[in-house]
Amino acid sequence: MIEMDYSAHYIILSVILFTIGAIGFVVRRNAIVAFMCLEIMLNAVNIAFVALSRRVGNLDGEIAVFFVMVVAAAEAAVGLAIIISVFRNLQSTETTDASQLRL
């Protein structure tokens, strides 16, 4: 069986997902939804990492994905705690309400 390499298709999928995430991050004003768009972008990059890792033929790309996941988990914990503390002060999670850069 001849195995074909479709890295380009996975990269195009990854680019489309990244773009949807980026546009959502710009367009939505709810901080939690913006955070979810961030997760979409991170996952899109992970798909590209794994596809290219497979094409090149070593596992270093997959290790990079593992560390991206670690940082994403840390970022989720701190980011959501910040959203909670902003909500406590402003009674809102809209990003436009927190434009003062102070409490």
């Binding site: 195995e3 074909m4 390499d5 195009i12 890792s53 094409r55």
Partner: peptide, 18 residues
């Protein structure tokens, strides 16, 4: 750019399984 750089072709390298 991706379609030019990484055309669909037969896999050459040994396949890695994560």
């Amino acid at each position: 750019e991706a379609l030019q750089q990484f055309p669909v072709e037969q896999r050459t390298g040994e396949s890695v399984v994560g």
